[in-house]
Design a protein around this nucleic acid. Structure first.
Lengths: 340, 340
DNA sequence: TGCTCCTATGAAAACGTTCCCGAGAATCTC
DNA sequence: GAGATTCTCGGGAACGTTTTCATAGGAGCA
């Protein structure tokens, strides 16, 4: 894992641009190519002093294994695929980043692509990416169960927010966070709430909210389903302002931000007149005015678990495992006491 | 480019998971492997009817070339590397996305990674990525000139916001946008402005602003340099509120958002008492309250040019070319008439 | 008609690894 | 101390392509 400068900047190379191969290292160290190969893939199978000689020679020449040759012969690419709906959704960059960090520690590179939530693009992307990686994390896939099952037979797969029997799965549970949100609103004396539904495959979000608010004896009107966009929030806010609800919970932070924006424009005080809650705890939530109370899903945890689950699956461990990730409320300035 | 379902879901394959090779296609079509290879890489060199037979056979078997073998033999990987400072900066996701779209049309995949603006991480990342791609886009690289030059000798390189003689470069020019911003403020009657400097390698941003504001006879106080973060804006806003400036231009949208946030908290009206301008036109700018006047750099244009320039460089065209990208002001609700 | 020159195809080498197999040396076992 | 086992290493096949080279026809030209 140690990366020397030499690996990108050969020192003793007469001509730059000419990659140094295992063969040259072998002759420099006075051993066979097999032994050099072993020195990198199974160092404990080669005698310490031989190993050292090889490593020295490799460092001196600036040798780094050719990934193409390695994966051609070994079948392993050293990459993990991450297929997400939309990298522009601020929820995903931290996940990409955290997964990249996690994967790197295990010697993997991340190959990311997004699908714009179009099934055809997802198929095309999977076709391209799956040839170049050892396994795939599919986020909120649009594909049918059968297709996912067939894909899982071809390549190690981890599904996020999607359930198919027998395929390893990462489930993001909002129940804890939503329950805390309901308690939070209840404690502030709210009774009439609105849910701005963002649709998407993940209907679960809505279901969870309905159940939890009912359990806390909060009345819940529902708007939508709409696209989960800023403009959706703008539109919904207008409706909210003309109604009698005192609290809004939105499908995600972006929608909540639209609500905030429009309420400000309509001169409806937040949280004086209406309290607003988002979901995801993206950058947007912390930086809005007022800052947004939201439900946090830990990107680090999600990404780490997804990476680990996939790596386990690749290694043949953890077949069909389901890992659940929790959530919690992050109270900020967009929620407060209900007006009397 | 056409992607059949078969390419990810073999129809006639007796056992899933077993990749179909060129050899099987060859025998199915009754030709040699050479001809099959040609059918995919140089279709015009094979007789139409033979071509059709091969394509049919390939489609039927669900054949797709093995990228590892292809790049081992041919030296081409079919991937482009994109190395950026921080994917969490909302400026970058649209660029990643647009570049991905552009690259895909030319048969390339994007391999992205970020460096957290640490030179060591950048080196490590480059070492890993450069072996897997045909060329590299380096965004605001931290590396020294010599190192970049040596790297450019090894692999096709495109630099963004960084100049090294002889290396193809994409230069994002803010002069147009900044000049428009100065005009805009001038027209609103502002005279005393503050620049919140975000430092970074890109000192040019500050220089450009100083020159332009001076040319428009706007006095410009400078705060910082700080880290380009939300909290920086918060801090700066406090200073601004206690001074006599009526307009703020921030290093980027995130910093501007911090300014907006803190001014609201201090009950300083925006744009009533102070006008605020950001840079980058990220998602943040359009969705803030009030929406943020900012300087737009077209992600589409940047990404497209970067991809094209790199692809040209890989093909041996366009050595040392410098492409310049413009910018322009997007007036929104955070700027208005100066208070009297 | 005989020659040259394309055009379409096949055979085979090469790309840089990994990994199986076997050989020899060293260590162990009784 | 002899056979068995382990350890260390080298030889060479294999991974799936691309690409060079050779070859056989067929077209073009005189």
């Amino acid at each position: 894992m140690a990366v020397t400068f030499a690996s990108i900047l050969p020192t003793n190379e007469e001509e730059a641009g000419v990659a140094v191969t295992i063969k040259e290292v072998a002759s420099a160290a006075g051993v066979s190519v097999s032994t050099v190969s072993r020195a990198f893939t199974a160092p404990d199978q080669v005698q310490p002093q031989t190993l050292q000689r090889i490593l020295d020679a490799a460092a001196k020449l600036g040798y780094a294994p050719n990934p193409a040759a390695r994966s051609l012969r070994g079948g392993r690419t050293g990459s993990l695929g991450l297929i997400i709906p939309d990298i522009n959704n601020p929820f995903f960059p931290p996940i990409f980043k955290a997964m990249q960090a996690r994967a790197r520690r295990q010697g993997y590179t991340i190959l990311a692509a997004d699908t714009d939530e179009r099934e055809f693009d997802e198929l095309e992307t999977i076709a391209t990416v799956s040839k170049r990686v050892d396994g795939l994390v599919l986020w909120a896939s649009m594909l049918g169960e059968d297709r996912l099952r067939e894909l899982a037979a071809e390549i190690p797969l981890v599904l996020v927010n999607r359930h198919v029997e027998g395929i390893p799965e990462l489930r993001i549970s909002l129940t804890a966070g939503i329950s805390q949100a309901a308690e939070h609103l209840k404690a502030y004396g709210h009774t009439r709430c609105v849910f701005v539904n963002g649709s998407r495959p993940e209907l679960e979000r809505g279901k969870s909210i309905r159940e939890s608010f009912e359990a806390h004896e909060l009345s819940l009107a529902e708007l939508g389903p709409y696209e989960p966009r800023f403009e959706t929030g703008v539109h919904a806010a207008t409706l909210v302002a003309s109604g009698d609800a005192t609290a809004v919970i939105a499908h995600n932070d972006l929608v909540a931000l639209g609500v905030l924006h429009q309420l400000a424009k309509l001169d409806v005080k937040v949280p004086g007149a209406v309290s607003v809650i988002g979901i995801d705890d993206t950058l947007l939530a912390a930086t809005s005015t007022p800052s947004l109370t939201t439900i946090r899903i830990s990107a680090d945890e999600v990404a780490t678990q997804a990476a680990d689950l996939l790596i386990d699956t690749i290694a043949g461990r953890g077949g069909g495992r389901v890992v659940e990730i929790g959530s919690r409320l992050i109270p900020r300035a967009s929620t407060g006491p209900a007006p009397r």
